[in-house]
């Protein structure tokens, strides 16, 4: 009797979890369908920072900052980053101070209403290339260039998509017509056209560590940098996480032993 009940219980449990399990499957297919409409398949890269135990190649993050600073930052912002945050790339305060002092940031206005500039400090946010959104739009055919603070989190496809766009520029095939003025042919952009002119050229940036600045290398580094800006505490989070996980698993065992000891003489 009891055994039969057990069997029924398991059957119910099985049927139940099966039914719940089937539901997402029905939509997995649906999701893929959705994605096709929006963007093309782009090459997938093995990023060291992906996955629950990922970490950043800090040398690449630092090179990526150089690319951002010398190329992207003439149009794009990283509004929420301060110079001080750059210490997270593995630099010390002095090195970051040197970086900050190369930049001028606005600091109030003088008696004539002219903006005063001074050298940036660690607590300053990265300056924006345009005075305001209207200026940004005027310079970019009506669009404000994306802010990069969380780009790899918010853009569908994340880091792979950024790589794809950066490396996706091609000669316009014969017979291709642009829907918009001043656009460029790009394999991975929406409708294969994009308003951003090809940003990267070989040797555009001189890497301090002697790495050869191919377009591919620059794209890889700046993508890594942007992933880092989107999740600046990822290394720390994973490093502390592993320790605290082991600690807490150890706690589970200890507390279990305590529980067993306490319950030792309670008749079941």
């Amino acid at each position: 009797m009891a055994r039969k009940e057990k069997r029924i219980k398991w059957l119910l449990f099985g049927a139940f979890s099966g039914l719940i399990g089937i539901q997402p499957l029905a939509y997995a297919h649906n999701d893929a369908g959705n994605q096709d409409g929006k963007s093309q398949d782009y090459p997938k890269y093995q990023w060291r920072f992906s996955g629950p135990f990922g970490t950043y190649d800090l040398a690449s993050v630092q090179r990526g900052y150089a690319v951002y600073r010398q190329v992207c930052s003439s149009c794009h912002t990283i509004q929420h980053m301060t110079y001080g945050d750059l210490m997270g790339m593995g630099l010390n305060a002095e090195q970051v101070q040197d970086i900050a002092e190369q930049d001028q940031v606005p600091d109030g206005q003088d008696a004539q209403g002219k903006t005063i500039y001074r050298k940036a400090r660690l607590s300053d946010h990265f300056p924006a290339p345009y005075m305001n959104d209207a200026a940004a739009k005027a310079a970019n055919m009506g669009h404000v260039p994306l802010d990069f603070s969380r780009l790899t989190l918010t853009v569908p496809g994340g880091a792979d998509y950024i790589m794809a766009i950066l490396l996706g520029y091609r000669e316009k095939p014969a017979g291709f017509h642009f829907d918009h003025m001043n656009h460029y042919y790009n394999l991975y952009a929406k409708d294969k056209q994009i308003g951003m002119k090809p940003p990267l050229q070989a040797n555009q940036v001189r890497y301090m560590d002697g790495t050869k600045a191919t377009i591919e290398q620059e794209a890889r580094d700046v993508t890594t940098f942007l992933s880092w800006t989107a999740q600046p505490h990822l290394i720390e989070r994973h490093r502390i996480g592993v320790r605290i996980l082991f600690y807490s698993l150890f706690m589970v065992i200890l507390v279990y032993l305590v529980k067993r000891k306490v319950w030792f003489n309670v008749r079941k």
Partner: peptide, 18 residues
């Protein structure tokens, strides 16, 4: 306490890894 310790592990997984 035992169940709480397990919940702490779940919490840590969410906070630090997922």
């Amino acid at each position: 306490g035992f169940v709480l310790a397990i919940v702490a592990v779940i919490m840590i997984l969410l906070v630090f890894f997922f």
